[in-house]
């Protein structure tokens, strides 16, 4: 296993706070777009065995919509915004001004709208991240897939799998006030980026 995962309690706290500020920014952005209150939990910063990551969103065969963005900059990584199918349909109905329950399948416009949400959330997140760490990072254009959670998470897990058997995930759950939306926002730093992030906050 790689040494960079030997983090102190304070360092984990620092990462959690970065996740907190980033996700707070994202939640505010999402809230403004759909005009509903968005609650979020305290970000989970955890080092977990790679094969257990799909369980965070309900198991590898749960159907989810995933918006994936590659993050470029000094501390590259991946962002994955996962919504259970029901939440994604609800969010699309909200965005398109349709009655809830209308959407049963995502069309081109729906997908585009969800990718834009992923874009906005990532931008908000990374802005806060910059304020905190002074590490400037840019998201790629988003890509979207609706499929099994395990299959979608493969994309980020494979990269980590090359370096070790553990994944450090910074994960935040978003909940809309009426329980219609339950989203999971993952920031998964590339192996190697973690050191850069930790150094930037100067916590031992």
């Amino acid at each position: 296993m790689s040494d960079e995962f030997n983090l102190s309690v304070n360092q984990l706290d620092a990462l959690r706070e970065i996740g907190n500020v980033g996700a707070g920014n994202s939640a505010t952005a999402l809230s403004q777009i759909i005009n509903k209150r968005i609650d979020m939990n305290v970000p989970k910063v955890a080092l977990v065995p790679i094969e257990t990551v799909p369980d965070i969103v309900g198991g590898p065969d749960t159907i989810v919509v995933g918006v994936f963005l590659r993050v470029y900059g000094k501390a590259p990584g991946n962002i994955l915004f996962l919504l259970p199918q029901k939440s994604a349909f609800y969010l699309v109905d909200t965005l398109m001004g349709r009655e809830h329950g209308t959407t049963r399948k995502l069309d081109f416009m729906d997908e585009s709208a969800l990718m834009e949400i992923g874009n906005i959330l990532s931008g908000a997140y990374l802005n806060a991240f910059f304020t905190f760490t002074q590490i400037s990072m840019l998201p790629s254009i988003p890509a979207l897939a609706m499929d099994m959670a395990g299959a979608i998470l493969n994309v980020v897990l494979v990269q980590l799998g090359q370096m070790g058997d553990q994944a450090l995930v910074i994960e935040t759950e978003f909940l809309a006030e009426d329980d219609g939306i339950d989203g999971h926002f993952f920031l998964v730093p590339d192996p190697g980026s973690l050191n850069t992030i930790i150094r930037s906050v100067g916590v031992e």
Partner: peptide, 23 residues
């Protein structure tokens, strides 16, 4: 059968693995 794992068995067992993407 989980990710990065394997199982062996014999009839009448069924071996199943969920949610393969690039795996």
């Amino acid at each position: 059968v989980g990710m990065a794992d394997y199982k062996v068995g014999r009839s009448p067992s069924i071996l199943i693995s969920y949610g393969l993407g690039s795996c």
